[in-house]
């Protein structure tokens, strides 16, 4: 019986979906966010990398930075999803790693911190 009524709740009587698919999506999102900032920071620090990322001239290096990060995000997601789908993964470790990636992404994206790490 559902805690909110007299009817059986099919959602709560259904078997639990393994967390593998969620773990893959969460890890990939963390890696994707970190990739944006790492690529941008590398481009900012090394002119030849900025030049390499200049894939669409009107947008400048942001075009290569964002495309590389999105490609990395989707590839990590697809790879992990294939391997983890239907499995129970150690979500504590994966979640913590994803949040660290997210934190690194935010910190590195903030120009005063990025510049300080470059010694400016």
């Amino acid at each position: 019986m559902s805690p909110h009524g007299n009817h059986a709740d099919p959602e709560h009587s259904a078997p639990t979906i393994p967390n593998g698919s969620a773990a893959a999506a969460i890890l990939a999102a963390g890696v994707g966010c970190a990739s944006v900032s790492i690529c941008a920071w590398l481009g900012d620090a090394i002119p030849s990398i900025a030049h390499f990322f200049n894939w669409y001239h009107p947008t400048g290096p942001l075009s290569g930075v964002s495309t590389t990060a999105i490609t990395t995000w989707l590839m990590v997601w697809a790879f992990c999803h294939r391997r983890w789908k239907g499995q129970a993964m150690p979500m504590g470790i994966i979640g913590a790693f994803s949040l660290i990636c997210l934190g690194v992404g935010f910190l590195l994206s903030f120009p005063p911190i990025g510049d300080a790490l470059q010694g400016r």
């Binding site: 999506a25 966010c33 942001l62 999105i70 995000w73 935010f106 994206s109 903030f110």
Partner: peptide, 20 residues
């Protein structure tokens, strides 16, 4: 300089949230 990069976090994170 901050906005042009950090803005990409929103669609990446939101896509994951929607999927999960």
């Amino acid at each position: 300089e901050w906005k042009e990069h950090v803005a990409w976090f929103a669609p990446i994170a939101m896509t994951m949230v929607a999927y999960v």
